[in-house]
Design a protein around this nucleic acid. Structure first.
Ligand SMILES: [Mn+2]
Ligand SMILES: [Mn+2]
Ligand SMILES: [Zn+2]
Ligand SMILES: [Zn+2]
Lengths: 140, 140
DNA sequence: ATCCTACGATGGACGCAATCCAAGTCAAGA
DNA sequence: TCTTGACTTGGATTGCGTCCATCGTAGGAT
């Protein structure tokens, strides 16, 4: 918990019951939920909240920089409320489990100016892929 | 051009006219096409090739390690025939342009053993995001 | 050269994730 | 309390990809 609601209120985010519930679901656990998973948890607190509203709220939280959107596979995007702690991800290629990692060293320096093609690079995403302990210990 | 077809033949890949065309489309240009873009170019050479066949062929080329599948955004996956030259990507956040980059330094070393949570890490993907020169020079 | 058959191709139906939309509802300032 | 622009809703729609029953054929066998 990191007082996400407090920050949102200060920034003048119009606070509806639906938005409050979405923010609470995200703030509660530092996991990487899909939009439908967020919706499922939101429904437990506010039964009639719609999927469209969850998508709308998530999109705004991403725009506000309070949540990071991840597309680690070609499936549903995942929403990461741990946006204030820059970090990268370790993903299991078999079961999809995602863990936060904090590699050392400045990754930006690896990209020489001649390799930037005139781009203004603003962020770097690193995804480490492999097998988690559970999946590595299985046959086939 | 890197004799993709030659390697495939040596590996016993059953060579149909459809598969030949898909391989030729990919081998011809070192770009990052979507499945539908590959299909469009394949149709120019073999008008009745189906989308399902293109998806099948791309999936096998990925399994064979001859093509890399990219999910840089939440949109259509892109297929990279430059799989024999390990590299990373620089992506424009506005227009989606993708460029190959070859950062220096060993990125794997940044992830300490204590940070691996028992995973057997087999590869690292790095995506640099920012604005390309054309998009940076536009208002709004 | 011809035959055989297991593997590949086809295209239309289907599934999932996400967005769009017109109509109804409400938070928050006056 | 009143007003109004912003938010919510759920059903339709889109985009991307997969599935499947059926047809066709590459390539080994003869
Ligand atoms: Mn995370
Ligand atoms: Mn590439
Ligand atoms: Zn796993
Ligand atoms: Zn651009």
């Amino acid at each position: 918990m990191s007082d996400l609601l407090g920050r949102l209120r200060e920034r003048g985010w119009r606070l509806t019951s639906q938005r409050r519930v979405v923010a609470e679901v995200l703030d509660g656990e530092h996991v990487h939920l899909t939009a439908d998973e967020v919706h499922a948890r939101a429904v437990e607190r506010l039964p009639e909240i719609s999927r469209a509203t969850v998508y709308n709220a998530l999109g705004e939280l991403v725009t506000l920089g309070e949540v990071v959107e991840l597309s680690t596979d070609g499936r549903a995007k995942r929403y990461d409320p741990n946006a204030r702690h820059p970090h990268h991800h370790l993903v299991c290629s078999r079961c999809g489990t995602i863990r936060d990692v904090h590699p050392t060293g400045d990754l930006m320096t690896g990209l020489a100016a001649e390799e930037r093609f005139g781009f203004t690079v603003s962020k770097v995403e690193v995804t480490y892929r492999g097998l988690c302990p559970a999946c590595a210990g299985q046959d086939a």
